[in-house]
Design a protein around this nucleic acid. Structure first.
Lengths: 245, 245
DNA sequence: CGCCGTATTGAACAAATTCAAGATCTGTGG
DNA sequence: CCACAGATCTTGAATTTGTTCAATACGGCG
């Protein structure tokens, strides 16, 4: 993988929400990074770790985990290729949540030092980083709303709609995308038991809305699924007018 | 209320997590703002609004709302005096969630322009704003975990622990603080019905952990409540070493 | 081929919701 | 100061939803 392409997905996604000049984009392209591979269920950022780098998913799937002492586990974010998982560690380096590969995953580590340098040189980049973190928080906020719903079908449907759209942003078919994770992980992400995830996916499938098989999600009726999940993509802030630099 | 004191709580709270110089603090103190009062249940930032200001709670209590079409409502953040409710509107001005007064509430509105100016002049302030938003996201993340718990008692206990500590930061007694909101609002914030909130509060009270009465929370056994809620304040990032400026 | 993690299914159980009714509180006008 | 109206709080009982526990099937990989 050449130095100039690994970060391309991430840079393109930043450009969806932030206007950056040629120079600014070039400075992102030339950021130094290390490529690392992790098997499924391996932490790549530990709990309580004082981080010195931020991680960008190049391939695979990553999750942010949290758990209570009594065993309730939650995935509070799922990151697909092109996502920076912990850009927020730039202002808050002490990790409060572990980051884990949900499948075999390739990440690029970029040092905080390098990120700070480029943010210092180009304020628009600092703004873009800030914006990216705020949008991540908006996604989390929607997850919190979603978790409060009583109907498991709608919870999962909403999750699938969101992932579909986020995959679409990186050039995938939104109605047929990879999701190489276990039902237990889906449960952690939706606040359900793996058993109920299983039943719920079957129900969604029986209604002809979507299928999950072999680590892929196939959406069979996007329009109906959107209505069913009450999915409104505004929170992803994709169509917002670009704010002043 | 004099110009130099209304923002003091907020500035002090920023200083808990960010080291700022005298000049920097002074520039925050002299930010121009407008004071506004809202009755309970009044929106002060509307859904879909293109904001030009950020709001700081001076007095009272504010909530960020979200809801699904089928009627599930959620409060995704509760803001006490000293909190900036929507500093994140600086990089993402289009509001995806309304902000509402939960009780009679005084807010200070500060223009994005003024905030951007001061952030541009002092990069450490820009960093402090960024950090504040990231900590807000960390709180939200903990709410998402909390919502996934099966036991209502622990959910509410956790919420009360968090609010207690946040009130302590602004000089209130953490075991006796105001919470002038309805049980319906508490339900929206914890993913429960108001009826179940009522029963759950009674249960917590019966166990001698805490009481709620007349718009106040009185915690009777902090240590036991913390254990009960499995509350670990690390996510508030209060004891973190200060990162490089 | 056999193992182990994952998926699937069933039945009993626990938890929270819903619906309904009544009590209490709060603010307002007389 | 009291009476009233509306909101909030409280309580009960039936119902819905999801969980738990347990057992079995599947599927990839050594």
């Amino acid at each position: 993988m050449s130095d100039t392409t690994a970060l391309e997905l991430w840079i393109n996604r930043l450009l969806l929400r932030s206007a950056l000049s040629e120079d600014e984009v070039e400075s992102l392209r030339t950021l130094p990074f290390n490529i690392e591979n992790y098997d499924a269920n391996r932490d790549f950022v530990g709990l309580g770790e004082m981080t010195t780098h931020s991680c960008i998913v190049i391939n695979g799937l990553a999750g942010r985990f949290d758990q209570t002492r009594d065993g309730t586990r939650a995935i509070t974010a799922i990151h697909i290729p092109g996502d920076a998982c912990d850009l927020h560690s730039l202002p808050v380096p002490l990790s409060a949540n572990p980051l884990q590969a949900l499948a075999r995953t390739t990440i690029a580590r970029v040092s905080h030092e390098a990120l700070r340098d480029v943010a210092k040189q180009y304020p628009a980049i600092a703004q873009a980083f800030f914006r990216d973190c705020v949008v991540d928080a908006a996604i989390l906020s929607k997850w919190a709303l979603n978790a409060g719903r009583t109907e498991a079908r709608q919870r999962l449907a909403h999750l699938f709609c969101e992932l579909a759209l986020r995959y679409a942003l990186i050039g995938q078919n939104k109605c047929d995308f990879p999701l190489p994770i276990t039902q237990a992980h889906l449960g952690d992400a939706s606040g359900l038991t793996s058993i109920h995830v299983n039943r719920t996916i079957r129900a969604l499938s029986d209604e002809g809305l979507m299928r999950v098989s072999q680590g892929r999600v196939v959406i069979e009726d996007w329009d109906r699924l959107v209505v069913y999940a009450d999915f409104n993509p505004a929170y992803l802030h994709l169509a917002d007018p670009k704010p002043p630099r």
